[in-house]
Amino acid sequence: MAEQPEVKSSNQVDTVLQDYLDQLLVAATAMPAPVEASVVGTSMPVEEPAVRSQSIDTVKAFARSESVTQVQESLPQTLVMPVPSVAEVEQPHLPDTVTDTFETDQADDNPPEIESEDVNDLSVSAGGGTPVDTMTLNWRSSQGIDCLIFKVAGLKLAIPLPLLGGVFNVTDKVTPLFGQASWSLGVWQGEMGKLTIIDSAQLIMPERGLSLEDTGYGFFIQLDRSPWALACQEICDTVTLVHDSIKWRGETSKRPWLAGTVISEMCALIDVPGLMQLLTENVRPAAPH
């Protein structure tokens, strides 16, 4: 009985957060017209980094491909190619209630474990389905988590560097496949393999009716080690985020791709496992031959 008001209060907070995000998305998409793809592909704004952390430098050593190196040359100095590594993810303090454990292909010997309060925990994410095999992050670490900020149709999005598979400059065209969902731009052949390119504007804010196919895009952001990549128009900066700097999404959120919002950066933090699960759930099973 005594807990009843708390539940209501929690729901109200969720509603306020939801409204805030809605306003953020509206405000962001009302910004000036996005940059043309051809322009984006050749010139990059060089901004002073808001935060330059040591961990970013250590990531540089893991840069893994020629294409990645090319991208590095054209990106702001703070943008480096992260390769998810166990070393990057600090082992969280073992909580009393560990909800689940995921393994990565690199971290078989010492898989990171999920804190129950971690918003990236798939148990918090909407929907069932097969959990996506990915890392979890220790947002409560005093050093925080480095995130890359990029822009899609005026909206700033942040992705944690440990869950960033790579940033690729758009060199070759994307091959569209017929009959696909409106948020699929097609298949792109990178040096590391084929990626299915997602029209981030169509997927994240379909109600705006924007499409990167029309407005253009300059970069692909690969989600962890998955075959999925988000198309974006601009790479902005890297910042270090700590748990308290993020307004985490409520459990009633209808946006499984959203981990929370970062008011200081006016950006939305992507829940990479949630987004990957959302994409995976939309894959049609292969028809029998």
Binding site: G179, Q180, A181, K194, L279, A286, A287
Partner: peptide
Amino acid sequence: TTPNVGNEESAKFI
């Protein structure tokens, strides 16, 4: 094979 996110019947031809 690529992830088939087809929402139309034609997607199965691929």
